[in-house]
């Protein structure tokens, strides 16, 4: 077991230089970035959750994270295309503060609606349909979740061709929809 692990970790070391060549164990054609990414995410979670830094627990963590990553490496990111993934994660982290700010603004708006005495006249629920120009699964995921997180709008339906149905609670929330958020999401994933 330890030998196997050493081989894996050795390959992990030499991975960044040779991107698509020299894969001895196991012989797959796919890129190995999803595997490594899953491994690192799982291992970071392990370290945070266990909180013990001695050799025994770290070895257990490496072994189980390798097993999990080899089983489910291609589940987390099925859509890998060129464009270095770390760079995209950096862009995604840049996107987060803007998203939090939007969420905060929209939360204030919904709070105002909820505590307003004449709420029934202010709200005007409707379903808006629009077509998005995004064409990757990952960007659809991020965009739909961002729509749902900004209150006042909930994604009702998404098709893989980019047809969105969005339930908006009043007219003002619905108007701003495809606009800036879509541009930002498109910028993250390089479309």
């Amino acid at each position: 077991m330890v030998d196997r692990e050493k081989q894996y970790s050795h390959q992990k070391q030499s991975q960044p230089e040779s991107n698509q060549s020299s894969l001895k164990i196991p012989p797959t054609k796919k890129s190995r970035t999803p595997f490594l990414l899953t491994f690192f995410v799982a291992f970071a979670t392990w370290i945070v959750l266990s909180g013990k830094f001695d050799l025994f627990h770290l070895t257990l963590g490496i072994i189980s994270c390798l097993i999990v990553a080899s089983f489910s490496g291609d589940l987390m990111l099925s859509d890998t295309r060129k464009k270095g993934l770390p760079y995209q994660w950096l862009l995604f982290i840049q996107y987060l503060p803007w998203l939090l700010y939007q969420v905060f603004l929209a939360n204030i708006h919904v709070m105002y609606l909820v505590f307003h005495p004449k709420m029934m006249e202010l709200i005007d629920p409707r379903i808006i349909r629009f077509k998005s120009r995004l064409n990757r699964e990952m960007s659809h995921l991020i965009f739909a979740n961002s729509i749902t997180l900004t209150p006042g709008t909930i994604t009702v339906f998404v098709s893989i061709y980019g047809d969105y149905a969005v339930h908006a609670i009043d007219e003002k929330c619905g108007q701003s929809l495809p606009g800036e958020m879509e541009k930002r999401v498109a910028k993250i994933l390089g479309e």
């Binding site: 939360n107 709070m111 709420m119 629920p125 609670i169």
Partner: peptide
């Protein structure tokens, strides 16, 4: 409690 129907109830429920 206050919202009129179930779609609009989800707005405060899920996100506030």
């Amino acid at each position: 409690i206050r919202m009129p129907d179930f779609y609009s109830r989800l707005h405060p429920a899920g996100k506030l």
